[in-house]
Amino acid sequence: MDITPDHLILFRWGFVHLNATIVYTWAVMLLLVLAAWAATRKIRLDGPRSRWQNAMEAIVIGIRSQIREVSGRDGSDDYIPFIGTLFLFIAASNELHVVPGWHAPTGSLSTTGALAICVAVSVPIFGIRKVGLKKYLHHYLSPVFFMLPIHMISEVSRTIALAVRLFGNIMSGSMVVAILLVIAPLFFPVLIQALDLIIGLIQAYIFAILAMVYIAAAVHREDEKPQEQTT
């Protein structure tokens, strides 16, 4: 039994091997781009809105309100492209599990690792852009300078945790279904698969919210100081 779609080679051309992860990632990308194109094709502010535009506005407003609740102040529009893309990509690739024969690209540690590294790189970028390089780096030395290795370890471990959490949830979902197909073939796998859809959506939400929490923690470092002094 394969625990990751990386080993599933779909196409071989010379030394180029296309595995299932890459192909299904492309499928998700194509689907998202086509949906976005179809929704924004005839966008307009006045008059009756099309269904596509209405759905797209609902999604964007929902994501923005969630981001605003975490980041706490205006300026949430800076994060919508990154966080919203993360959420939509993970949610789409998890929910497409209803398509028979689908291998979710998030069930591979390569995909989730890449997404987690994107988050880990974007945190200092957003932080330095907001509070400046000196203030950002100063956080690593607070409260005392020998906390530096601990801050480093926490950055690395939370990135690994982000990747393994998503991978473990999605991979274990399809694995439990495969094992149940052997034990109780008819009814139970359907229920578990329905549960997997919920878990996939929750994990997409959690991945996006955790990325937002990390970014917000890096961005709001400037107001940590006065709070610490007053208490």
Binding site: I3, V70, R165, F167, G168, M171, M175, I206, V213
Partner: peptide, 29 residues
Amino acid sequence: AISRTLFIGLAMIESIAIYCLVISIILIF
């Protein structure tokens, strides 16, 4: 606010069990 924080916390706690699951699955498969 409570349920959002609860979800984040649950994901953090749950990831410990998920690490164990990943290690078991690697050991078996």
